[in-house]
Design a binder for these strands. Structure first.
Length: 328
DNA sequence: TTGATTTGACCTCC
DNA sequence: GGAGGTCAAATCAA
């Protein structure tokens, strides 16, 4: 299955004359994607207050046999460069026996290739680091015939909760972003299912607490100036202007209760069986709350009828924590 | 000090 | 033997 971003990608852009119709189309695609990704948790599209979409970030689904990615993940922090491992002077015999202290199971697992039949999900996305889980990188490998190395991640709960979930992320050769002008694409393979509490804690694939911050009074003609927009997780609220993900609070412009509502009421809701609208319609508050499913890639309706994901794609730089979201 | 990342070595499968 | 996958020491930023 391939979600045709082209059919919708430019639609929710600012000032698209047929944006409503295209939004409908996008919503259909979202429903399809969600159905594929989360067959057991997919709510009725028409009855859902969901307003996330994956189409804007070139997410295509090749095969799905896994439960969803869920809660927001902080983008892996880029730290300093690693180092070469110096093992001079270590007896070769000892090196050969490295891991000799490991359990039999550990030794057996080392380097073992995936079994046939291991449940995997393969997606192509422009935002591999923002898939709803927290991952710990444990390796990187240059893959033969691949232009870019493959990174190996395991769930951060793999140790304390024995969560078997892993994933590999590899940048696509043809998605370098300099050919068609689009962001680089990454093939993400999810291996095994999450068994950790973090996965069970959230029944629906949602980001429960998010906040979109505007540092300027919303201007329907100039939303989220790209030059100063950034995205960060709640643990690291952005100190700069732009969009931040944070707790479900409203701040900034002293919104009235009616302006604020509750977190979910500020979320775009479905009207009829077609289109999203804001409820309540945002007026002058500077910070908007969302409580709803915002999956990777992020896609949220903005007050002016455009889409934040659109802004992500079309404006730069957008940063997720310290990571460049779309790489341009 | 802690914990994430890097990266070459090692292990297993084909 | 080659390639994919994993380990774990070294490194560095918070």
């Amino acid at each position: 299955m391939q979600l045709n971003r082209g059919a919708v990608g430019g639609a929710h852009g600012r000032g698209a004359p047929d944006g409503m119709q295209l939004r409908c189309r996008e919503r259909e695609l979202v429903a399809q994607l969600h159905e594929l990704l989360f067959p057991s948790t997919t709510p009725s599209a028409a009855g859902s207050s969901m307003s996330w979409s994956a189409s804007s970030a070139n997410l295509s689904l090749e095969h799905c046999s896994l439960p969803p990615v869920k809660t927001p993940a902080s983008c892996g922090k880029r730290r300093g460069k690693g180092s070469k491992r110096v093992r001079e002077g270590q007896p070769q015999q000892e090196q050969k026996q490295r891991g000799g202290g490991c359990s039999t199971a550990t030794k057996a697992a080392r380097g073992r290739r995936r079994k046939e039949g291991t449940p995997t999900t393969t997606i192509v996305t422009t935002v591999p680091d923002f898939d709803g889980y927290q991952w710990k990188k444990y390796g990187q490998k240059h893959i033969e015939a691949a232009q870019y190395p493959r990174s190996y991640y395991r769930c951060t709960n793999s140790m304390d909760q024995a969560c078997p979930a892993k994933r590999t992320v590899q940048r696509n050769d043809d998605g370098d972003g300099d050919g068609d002008g689009g962001p680089p694409k990454y093939t993400v393979v999810y291996i095994s299912e999450h068994s950790c509490k973090a996965a069970e804690a959230v029944a629906a694939p949602v980001i429960l607490e998010t906040t979109v911050v505007r540092t300027k009074t919303p201007d329907t003609a100039a939303v989220f100036p790209g030059s100063s927009s950034a995205v960060s997780t709640g643990t690291q609220p952005s100190a700069t202007s732009g969009i931040t993900w944070s707790g479900c609070t409203v701040a900034g412009a002293n919104p009235t209760p009616s302006e604020r509502g509750d977190c979910s009421s500020l979320f775009a809701v479905v009207h009829g069986d077609c289109c999203w609208e804001w409820d309540p319609a945002p007026t002058s508050f500077q910070e908007m709350d969302f409580a709803g499913p915002i999956m990777s890639p992020v896609h949220v309706a903005a007050t002016d009828g455009s889409w934040i994901s659109d802004l992500f794609v079309n404006e730069s730089p957008f940063v997720l924590n310290s990571c460049q979201l779309f790489g341009f």
